[in-house]
Design a protein around this nucleic acid. Structure first.
Length: 180
DNA sequence: GCCAACGTTGGC
DNA sequence: GCCAACGTTGGC
């Protein structure tokens, strides 16, 4: 019998419904946003005026839906360095402006130009994120993988997405790891 | 509508 | 640098 590679079962349909469920009054939700530090590091965000940046260039429908339909003002966002040594959650941001059209999609000279996005019917969106604080101890990808409480984390399940949801329980575990 | 080819992401 | 995991594209 040939060795068969085991693979985590794909997330069932509706697995991320909770992300879009109605909120209790004042409920805050949690997210993770990825960036390659060579391109845009947490330190770069920290150096921006008001420590704020538009989170542009998201060109994946699932990530867009999380960003456009899920993220709300005041939500907390883990800032993750991907393709880094080590890849790690290094800081915390918050959503300071909810989704609005990503104008870089309209710009022929922008690397994220998408002729399929029309200003009259924008296809891609962005939010504004403001850096809140650096994590005292970055939480690396191996750290995350080592915690069984985090096995269901979207980052580990659908890791390519630039924006993923984080459950409150996952947020608490990660804060206990890095925010001290 | 199917599916092969191709491109991207990002861990390793 | 390699490759797994997908998403997208386009021929049919």
């Amino acid at each position: 019998m040939p060795a068969r590679k085991t693979r985590a079962a794909p997330a069932p349909a509706g697995a991320w419904d909770w992300v879009f469920a109605p909120r209790r009054r004042g409920e805050k939700r949690y997210w993770l946003a990825k960036s390659e530090p060579d391109v845009f590091a947490f330190e770069d965000l920290w150096a921006r005026p008001d420590r704020t940046t538009p989170w542009d260039g998201v060109r994946n429908f699932t990530a867009r839906n999380f960003l456009r339909d899920g993220m709300r003002l005041g939500d907390q966002v883990l800032f993750y360095h991907s393709n880094a040594d080590p890849s790690a959650i290094v800081g915390i941001c918050e959503v300071v402006r909810e989704a609005y059209p990503d104008h870089t999609a309209f710009d022929r000279n922008d690397p994220h130009f998408d002729p399929g996005s029309d200003p009259a019917a924008p296809k891609w969106f962005m939010v504004d994120l403001r850096a809140v604080r650096r994590l005292p101890r970055p939480v690396t990808l191996p750290d995350l993988k080592a915690r069984k409480e985090l096995a269901g984390m979207a980052l580990l399940r659908i890791g390519r997405l630039s924006v993923t949801p984080v459950r409150p329980e996952e947020w608490r575990v990660i804060m206990a790891m890095g925010d001290r």
